[in-house]
């Protein structure tokens, strides 16, 4: 058996064996663990927060819709253990709208960490004012406790 044939059969054997070892019958190891295990457990110290005070309803490219663009917030993580959660939430009372994006912090997230809000598109008939008052908050959730990092009003400007 020449070398390249040995290599190819080794590769096939390994590729087929590993899923069986991790499979329901053999189950020596479990290689496919849900990464959400332990989410929200641990601890974190946040010693600084920077959040925007204005955001935009921007006329979308080549359409009449509006894209809500909220700049990223930044938090400074002094120390961290486990997998704490940070949720970034925007609520617009005049539109009965609110949206939150949850970020999973990991143990190597120290120093400044950017927190972004998922972008959403609005039909043109939902925007009828030139500015909106909204509220922007950042909440740290660890071990089923909530700590408000930031909770301030924000002005949304409509452009285009």
């Amino acid at each position: 058996m020449d070398r390249s044939r040995l290599l190819v059969w080794t590769a096939v054997a390994v590729i087929c064996a590993v899923p069986v070892l991790s499979g329901p019958v053999v189950g020596v190891v479990d290689l496919t663990r849900e990464p959400l295990d332990g989410i929200g457990d641990g601890s974190a110290t946040i010693d600084a927060v920077e959040a925007p005070d204005t955001a935009l309803f921007d006329r979308a490219l080549s359409s009449d819709s509006y894209v809500l663009k909220v700049p990223d917030a930044r938090i400074h993580v002094a120390s961290i253990e486990g997998r704490p959660l940070v949720s970034y939430k925007l609520s617009i009372p005049a539109m009965s709208y609110s949206r939150a994006t949850t970020h999973f912090l990991s143990p190597d997230d120290t120093g400044w960490v950017d927190i972004s809000l998922a972008r959403e598109t609005f039909a043109p008939d939902r925007i009828d004012q030139s500015t909106y008052e909204a509220n922007l908050s950042l909440i740290l959730r660890v071990n089923d406790t909530k700590q408000t990092l930031h909770d301030e009003p924000i002005t949304l400007e409509v452009t285009g």
């Binding site: 190819v8 590729i15 899923p19 991790s22 499979g23 053999v26 479990d30 496919t32």
Partner: peptide
């Protein structure tokens, strides 16, 4: 296949075998 193979690794396994065959 899922009787013996970890379902999460089943599709990566098939894809990797396709790569091996493709190279050959």
């Amino acid at each position: 296949l899922a009787v013996v193979v970890d379902p999460g690794l089943l599709l990566p396994m098939v894809w990797a075998l396709v790569l091996v065959a493709l190279g050959r």
